[in-house]
Design a protein around this nucleic acid. Structure first.
Ligand SMILES: [Mn+2]
Ligand SMILES: [Mn+2]
Ligand SMILES: [Zn+2]
Ligand SMILES: [Zn+2]
Lengths: 158, 158
DNA sequence: CTGTATTTTGAGAATCAGAATCAATATCAA
DNA sequence: TTGATATTGATTCTGATTCTCAAAATACAG
């Protein structure tokens, strides 16, 4: 385990899952976990470039995909499909269920939850004789404030 | 234009759009339109097999894709992505905006609309300083009634 | 109706994200 | 430390959709 990391608990969570399943804690898995937990939403490709830039070690794109999927199994990540033909991985470590509001102009992603909407969804399902397993609610639009929209666009930490 | 078709109006709609854009009304476009208007939701591949079965004429898969996209431009169809890696085309000719309830067991698709939910969505967007362009709401679950679930599964006309 | 310019078609190649292969390498428990 | 086992990364493969382009169909002026 890396010294000086502020992610002892998170790495422990990963290690625990791995051990329980006779899997191994590798350097790349740890590196990927750390980089992933630093962001909110990211694609495999972006994470790959992010890690490669700091080229602390060789890292194959396939490993990024494999590990990201592993994190989803553990429950640390979740796949999102805001636009078809690319998967965005959502870091949900300290988050509960939420839906998304997405700006088509600056790609800002806002997370929200609406108990009222969730209730109406259940009601609608029941009305049609359905038991709900999950749902997907995505709202697309644009920021009213162009300045904010641009500022977000320019900021690197997304 | 085919004789005996009950789709004069719809074919006219297509022809009108085509003429307006210096495009041509071909046999395959008419065949695809007719087959498409016969269903609610269908993939390009399914429509391809459907038409090939009745092999009234040779028809390339690329033509199906091209024409389905054309119908979407006209507003007769709309792409859906209930599961990533395959596009379902929704025949929306006589439908207004609606969302979907999908059975994970039998693939039944129920269309619904909820003004109450739509209102709450707008409210949520406004709260975050957003103007809404569109949204995606999909509810996944399963039919309570297994019998109905199976019956649906067996019925051909989907 | 006919000739001609223009669009469309179908077969197959190209694309692209993501998964599968597999020999070489790393991990871990005894 | 050793050896069984899992993992890695380079590469190939996959599958849905789009692209290419020569041959065929269509529209429309005459
Ligand atoms: Mn999120
Ligand atoms: Mn529909
Ligand atoms: Zn914005
Ligand atoms: Zn069902």
């Amino acid at each position: 385990m890396l010294k000086g990391s502020s992610l002892y608990k998170e790495v422990a969570l990963l290690k625990n899952y791995l051990t329980k399943n006779r899997l191994k804690l590798t350097q790349q898995r740890e590196t990927i976990l750390e980089a992933f937990l630093r962001v909110d939403h990211i694609t495999a490709e972006e994470l790959y470039r992010e890690i490669s830039k700091k080229k602390r070690q060789r890292m194959g794109l396939a490993t990024i995909y494999r590990t990201l999927n592993l994190l989803c199994e553990i429950g640390i990540g979740q796949q999102r499909h805001f636009d078809e033909n690319r998967t965005i991985f959502d870091n949900v470590l300290h988050k509960k269920h939420h839906d998304h509001l997405i700006c088509n102009k600056c790609d800002k992603i806002i997370e929200f939850e609406s108990p009222a909407i969730e209730r109406l969804q259940e009601e609608m399902a029941a009305r049609h004789g359905f038991t709900l397993n999950n749902h997907r609610l995505e709202l697309y639009g644009h920021c009213l404030d162009w300045k904010k929209c641009r500022d977000w666009q320019k900021s690197a930490d997304r």
